[in-house]
Simulated assay, not measured.
Amino acid sequence: MKAAAVPRATPPPPATDDPGGPPPSCHTLPDGQAILLRDVTPGDAPLLLGLLERVTGDARRLRFFTGGANLAAAAALEARCDDTDGPRLGVVALSADGGEVLGHGMCVPAGAGTAEVAFEVADGYHRRGIGTVLFAHLVGGARAAGYAELVAEVLPDNRDMRDLLTASGLAQTATTSEGIRHVRMPLGPAAPERGARA
């Protein structure tokens, strides 16, 4: 079956036209494909909604723990950039020409010194290393923001997410409650390894 088309994104502006944030950075996936990473902006809610609408079936259940998530509300939350409760970090992965959104990752405050991490990757792009690149970017950003620990809530059958966290090189402790795996990862000075594809 043909994979659903990924949503089109507005090409990121040149660095000289974007004084509010760093320019996009280029990364190469294990298969040789180049992608861009850039920080999420408040105007990205429609872009993120388009991505979420193309995270379908089991992938949507694994991301939201339900197939009936309010995607518009989720996109609005993911586009938030205020620091009311602590630093919020968000990053989108785009195709090399900036024309397709391939994935999104975020860290949101989850208590003193702790941030919760979550991702989504467009249908047709799983296990190609996009989640790994997003996670490495967020780990660096979380350290710079002063977080001491990342947490993730993962369904036990979410193999991609479990493999990604294991391959990161971060120490983990995990407990399971009400069918959800709660993973805690202290942040040390070492950069995560990029050995797994997600």
Rank of each mutant, 00 (worst) to 15 (best):
D18S: 13
Q33Y: 01
A9M: 05
R38G: 05
L52A: 07
Q33K: 11
P30Y: 11
D31I: 06
P24N: 04
P23F: 00
L37N: 00
I35N: 06
G50D: 06
V40S: 04
P23G: 07
T28Q: 15
V40I: 14
G21A: 09
H27R: 15
A45G: 11
P14S: 05
A34Q: 14
L49R: 13
P7R: 06
P42T: 10
V40M: 02
V40P: 06
D31N: 13
P42G: 12
D39Y: 00
P23E: 00
P22D: 06
P13E: 03
D18K: 01
L52W: 12
R8Q: 15
P42N: 10
A15K: 02
L48K: 01
H27F: 12
T28V: 15
Q33H: 05
D39K: 08
L51S: 07
A45D: 09
L37S: 01
D31K: 07
P23Q: 00
T16P: 00
A15S: 04
C26R: 15
P11D: 03
P19G: 03
A4H: 12
L36G: 00
R38C: 07
P11W: 04
A34I: 08
A3Q: 08
G32E: 13
P12M: 02
P7Q: 06
R8I: 09
L36Y: 01
A3V: 13
V6C: 13
G43V: 12
T41W: 11
L37A: 01
L47M: 12
T28Y: 12
D31P: 04
R8S: 13
P13M: 07
D31Q: 03
S25R: 15
E53F: 10
P46K: 14
I35V: 15
A3L: 07
D18W: 11
P30D: 03
A5K: 13
P23D: 00
P22R: 10
D17N: 10
G32N: 08
L48H: 02
A15E: 05
D39Q: 14
D44Y: 04
G43E: 15
L52I: 03
P7K: 10
G20E: 14
V40W: 10
L52R: 05
D17M: 14
E53N: 14
P24M: 03
V40Y: 10
A9V: 07
D18I: 00
P19Y: 01
L48S: 02
Q33G: 06
A15F: 00
P11C: 06
I35E: 04
A15D: 01
Q33V: 07
P46N: 11
A3H: 09
I35C: 09
G32T: 11
P30E: 08
P7Y: 03
P46S: 14
E53D: 15
D44N: 11
L36N: 01
D39M: 04
D31G: 08
P11I: 06
L52Y: 14
L47G: 12
A45C: 08
L47Q: 09
L47S: 08
P19C: 02
T16Y: 03
G43T: 13
P23Y: 00
L48N: 00
P22E: 08
L48T: 01
L29F: 10
L51T: 09
G20L: 14
R38V: 09
V40F: 05
L29N: 09
